[in-house]
Design a protein around this nucleic acid. Sequence first.
DNA 1: ACCGCTGTTTGACATTTATCAAGCGGCGGC
DNA 2: GCCGCCGCTTGATAAATGTCAAACAGCGGT
Lengths: 232, 232
Amino acid sequence: MRQEDQHEVRQLPLFSGMTQENFSRLMRAAYVQTFPPQVELLREGDRSDFLHVVIEGSVELFATWNGRETTMSVARPVSTFILAATIQDAPWLMSGRTLEKSRIVLLPSEDVRKVFAIDNVFARAVVSELARCYRGVLKDAKNLKLRSSTERLANYLLRWQKAHGGGARFELGLEKRRLAARLGMTPENLSRAIRALREEGVSVNGMTVEITDQARLSAFARPTPLIDDPNL
Amino acid sequence: MRQEDQHEVRQLPLFSGMTQENFSRLMRAAYVQTFPPQVELLREGDRSDFLHVVIEGSVELFATWNGRETTMSVARPVSTFILAATIQDAPWLMSGRTLEKSRIVLLPSEDVRKVFAIDNVFARAVVSELARCYRGVLKDAKNLKLRSSTERLANYLLRWQKAHGGGARFELGLEKRRLAARLGMTPENLSRAIRALREEGVSVNGMTVEITDQARLSAFARPTPLIDDPNL
DNA sequence: ACCGCTGTTTGACATTTATCAAGCGGCGGC
DNA sequence: GCCGCCGCTTGATAAATGTCAAACAGCGGT
């Protein structure tokens, strides 16, 4: 495993506090792999052999039931996924596939659990990360239950804009049909929602979004930190 | 604080592993309070002065946005709530109100965080609990995104039945309008969903449910452990 | 036993969302 | 440069869900 990849992983709040010794222990049997797009990394129901860390690219986490499929989230660099399942040695609740060519670090679950058992700094970092994830899905569930699809889109755009410098013009960064699934709607409806937001100060052209009337969009979206602030 | 109340709390996996010394430390400034129904215990956006433990009764955790309100979950004895917010000293993402007369143990957040900082057994128990909660909401979100309202109801009944002994006849244990909110629908629609399930082997009379055709209901609901197993 | 409150049910209707089918348009391969 | 593929858009229509209003039912208080 390359030094700079280890470095990337080490940067994460989850790993940054622990002793070098325990970090090395985690990294000893870890390896990096580059996957082409559309590779299924995890299948829901399976168990966790490795904790995954996306170093480059992006991974879609999705779930299926009864022939239907929906996107739950998209993991982007640098972040881990399926931490909860790894720690608990429980089956995955989501499947995962690469969306683009992606570099993924794989940490053997067994090692993660071992280090978790002996390293208290790491254990505490796991708490922080799990709390963050928990609050993340909770916000997602609130979003789904309290807002209409167009409102979800409007707020998504505002969040994404903020996360990418806050400029009036930015890239969507996700295929529209996946964005639709992420937001809990069909691609057709996403199209119509985008159309509807033209009246609210948004202009979308392909993957490029331009907020033409920030105040108007905000007034329509009515974002609240209790749903839309990713740091809360 | 009464001895038997402490005992109840001590039973929880979250607290059962820690030393008596640290447990006492947690309990030193803790107190029990009995609330009448419909008391607002928490308001979303506020911060956590106490970790709450329901000893008796039940607490509805709900969220609001833009004049709308929805029920996210119902905490029943014996369980804690708002653990994530307490540990992180972050604002609550949900409000909470008692549904019935309820006995609640209040543990000062400051103490919880202090003991968390020094007690590794407790810290690890917190990890387990957070992982459980995370997976819980995640299952909820899958439920919402992948199933229709009638399907959610059908699966809810099956889960509830299992959790209460598995007999053909059981009580709903929740006002219908709150169940409706919990399942992400209106009371009117819950009524119609109940009606629809008559064809699928369910008979509801007031708060009493009878599964008249278990196989038929299961075939309709198509439960999966990856959404419906509370232990996963 | 009656009254009145409150939660539930029902029906008619509106809105939102999904589905199906067709057309459009950009992009890569030939 | 042209073709064909794939994803996006659009329109028509259907299904699911929400809203509003009224009727109903159970229950506690008097």
